[in-house]
Amino acid sequence: MVDETLGTTLRRWRDRLSPRDVGLPERAGRRTAGLRREELAVLAGLSVDYLVRLEQGRATSPSAQVVATLARALQLQPDERDHAYRLAGLLPPAAGTISTHVPAGVQRMLARLDEFPVGVFSADWTLLMWTPSWAALIGDPADRTPEQLNLVRAVFTDGPGGLASWPVRQDEDGALGDALVADLRAALVDHPHDAGLAALVAELRATSADFARSWDHGAVGRHVSARKTVDHPQVGAITCDCDVLTVPGSSLRIVVYTVATGSPDAEKLEFLRVTRGVRAGPSA
């Protein structure tokens, strides 16, 4: 009799991925065909001990957040992700809620775009995945709380958890904020049953006069190519072109920062990329 458990299935999915698939170097003399447990644990933001207990069936009640981050790290297809939820005794994400699933093709693209700062956001503008160059330029997202990974909250929040912690200069005309508010309004229509999204809007309407004003005015905006300045504590100001890309059939937003080849900004970014030593990753 075949015993289909979450642990056996995780091992099978781990074995089919190579380090190159997830942006890790392939070292000579490697004996493991797929990913090592240690590698998957890092990618998923979990401890190796917990992953071992999951695979051995000794941890039997993982949270939906753990399953979601494992699904991203293992580059699962939507049907596979839903299967993982059921094996964990959980209901798959319901229709009308925001998906944190990042398609395998997008993950492979990120693994090969180490040169560029790239971040992948969900429909409510929570950062899900990033390249090492993103972490070097904006600051390592792994050092932030889950609340600080939401860009809308950062833009409309003062203090350490606000935009200063990213640290991208805010547009003087408030265009970024208005565009994000408009995005959230559209997201509420697309994901009417997402309690977290509704709670985020309610929280910001109660705590931010600027957000409430923009929301109550029915802000309409769209993301266009723009120039952004990042005030980096190590190399100073870096001015980048910022583009927001979308994935057909998905509500993901992919934010890409680029600089002109041979420019002083390119030299600063390359210095950070080479010396910072930060890793790519997902939010746990």
Rank of each mutant, 00 (worst) to 15 (best):
A44I: 00
L43F: 09
G57Q: 01
S61I: 00
V67H: 05
E55C: 06
S63H: 07
T69A: 10
Y50V: 15
L51W: 07
A33F: 04
D21P: 03
S18R: 15
V22A: 10
S47N: 11
D49I: 10
V66W: 01
S47V: 14
Q77K: 08
L17R: 12
V42I: 14
R31L: 11
T60V: 14
R72Y: 04
V42T: 15
D49T: 15
Q65K: 11
R81V: 07
P78W: 02
D82H: 09
A28K: 11
V52K: 10
L51K: 04
E38A: 12
A68E: 12
D15C: 07
A59Y: 01
L54W: 10
A44D: 04
P62C: 10
Q56P: 07
A59M: 00
L74V: 07
P62Q: 08
L70D: 02
G57K: 04
Q65F: 00
S47P: 11
R72F: 02
Q56A: 11
T32C: 07
W13D: 03
G34K: 05
S63F: 03
E38S: 14
R72D: 10
D49P: 08
L74W: 04
E26W: 08
E80D: 14
V48E: 08
V48D: 05
A44V: 06
L43R: 14
V48S: 05
D21M: 01
R58V: 06
L51V: 13
R14C: 10
S18P: 00
R12Q: 13
L46C: 05
G45A: 02
R81Q: 15
R81K: 09
S18T: 15
R20I: 12
D82A: 15
G45M: 09
E39I: 09
Q65R: 14
T69S: 15
L43C: 11
R81N: 04
V48Q: 03
A68H: 01
V67N: 04
E26C: 12
P19L: 08
Q77D: 15
L43Y: 05
A71K: 08
R30L: 06
E26L: 14
A41R: 13
D79Y: 00
L76V: 13
R16E: 13
R31Y: 08
A28Q: 12
A59P: 02
D82W: 00
V66D: 02
V48C: 00
L24E: 05
T60P: 02
R30A: 14
R36A: 07
Q75K: 03
S61Y: 03
A71T: 05
P25W: 07
D79A: 15
D82N: 12
Y50T: 15
A28V: 13
L51D: 10
S61A: 14
T60G: 13
E55L: 06
D49E: 15
L40C: 06
R30V: 08
R12F: 08
L70H: 04
L74P: 07
L24W: 02
S18Q: 12
Q56L: 09
L43N: 11
Q65Y: 03
R36M: 06
R31E: 12
A44P: 06
L54N: 04
V66Q: 03
L43T: 10
T32F: 02
L40P: 05
D15K: 09
L74S: 09
R81E: 15
D21W: 01
E26M: 11
P62R: 12
R36H: 07
T32Y: 01
R58D: 00
V42M: 09
R20Y: 00
E38Y: 09
L24A: 09
R30S: 13
L40A: 10
S61E: 11
T69G: 03
